[in-house]
Design a protein around this nucleic acid. Structure first.
Lengths: 226, 226
DNA sequence: CCGATAAGTTAACGGCGTTATCTTCAGCCT
DNA sequence: AGGCTGAAGATAACGCCGTTAACTTATCGG
């Protein structure tokens, strides 16, 4: 509200020491707009610029385009999701309980920040594909933590010994992601309590995996995708 | 390509008998654009109008706005999904096998039509909330079929007797939806074969549900959402 | 002191969804 | 037959969007 006042022309800020300041200010504004409006479309470059107190083209001095900006917001949210999940397992020794807690924290995060969750996990593949590898690494790293947790659970005997932790992690992730995603996008049904539902499903999933021969990819072609 | 030529002004078609013709032509074009470009943003009113050979405002004689148009496309896709699922269980007597087939058909549909799937299941709640009830009814009806299938499986003893078919259906739906959604939006990981994965997960889920006491909502408040 | 560079600015382009207004014709009523 | 009505188009325009080009100015290294 204060900047961009001079009207004469040229600059207002950046006494050269500020450097990357605007960069994070833009991210803040974008994130705030996203949360306040709850809609990705409402987060426009022009609105963000206005919120920061700067003209739209200035944004492009810090981000290549809108996609990169939103991706950067995603990264932040990803960090936050990672944080709440780690926080949820703090001081928890039982590896199975840890997996449960992670799952519930994940679902809760999704329900608390639906729009961010949508951006994180419901975006077109293209957007994440040709983006800088950072995003993928970030994803992979968060996922890796979960794989570790699953591996511990396997070691503890709560999940079948012979199974591939990566596959099991993918499957459990599918389960939590499925609930989260449906709860977010289909509030029309009379969903039971999310936490209890997650608990029940994870319990069932773990029990089911125990009672089922470990997954092995069929001999013919892996990666069928199209 | 042929219409809109007269340049003089006024009309070109609609000799009064054609009535709802343009309506479905628009839907066809929208659907085609969606499939060809594989991106919701690329499907603009103006492009659709051009494809049909008509000016943009004409679209609004048949649809209130772009959302309603896309929703109508969704309805069609929903019908298609419903069709492939029914087709998948044709002649299948074993209720458990029927549930599996439905699940696999669902996942395959999602992978074959990712953009449509995204619109169907990854849209904001708002869009489906204030839309005409049709969409919800349609959703509910497709879901109802699945609930019936689950109920049969419960009757057959493949799923625990005391359990609520609706809850079980929701849970199984979560599972398939989770895989589908992750496979679509996170192709970065080395996913195993989708069909085999679905099979394994559904098997595990059913086995798990059998080995777990049926879900019962906690006594305190149902519908926690936020 | 003087260029170079960084970080803003203004102006503009093309595309979008949408609306207001006008035109033309098919079909009905008399 | 002749005129009215309403449906189904067209044209022109508004305001928003992402993005780019060209300009301006302050800061700093030499």
């Amino acid at each position: 509200m204060n900047r961009a006042a001079p009207a004469t022309a040229g600059r207002t800020r950046a006494r050269k020491g500020e450097g990357e300041l605007l960069h994070s200010e833009i991210l803040d504004a974008a994130e705030r707009l996203l949360i306040e409006t709850g809609s990705e479309e409402a987060v426009s470059i022009r609105r963000i610029a206005e919120a920061v107190g700067v003209t739209p083209p200035s944004i492009y001095l810090h981000f290549a385009d809108k996609d990169e900006l939103l991706l950067a917001v995603c990264e932040r949210q990803f960090g936050e999701l990672h944080r709440v999940m780690e926080e949820a397992v703090e001081g928890v020794d039982d590896p199975v309980e840890a997996v449960y807690r992670r799952g519930k924290a994940y679902v809760r995060f999704g329900l608390d920040h639906p729009e961010q969750y949508r951006i994180l996990f419901m975006r077109a593949a293209d957007h994440t594909m040709d983006a800088p590898d950072e995003a993928r690494v970030r994803d992979a790293s968060a996922f890796h933590h979960f794989v570790d947790a699953v591996a511990s659970a396997i070691d503890s005997g709560a999940l079948p010994k012979g199974s591939d932790p990566v596959v099991v992690a993918l499957e459990l992730w599918s389960v939590v992601h499925g609930i989260t995603s449906l709860l977010i996008s289909k509030p029309m049904f009379d969903w039971p309590d999310a936490d209890a539902l997650t608990d029940h499903l994870l319990t069932a999933a773990c029990a089911g995996l125990m009672a089922t021969p470990p997954f092995s990819a069929p001999p013919t072609r892996r990666r069928s995708r199209r």
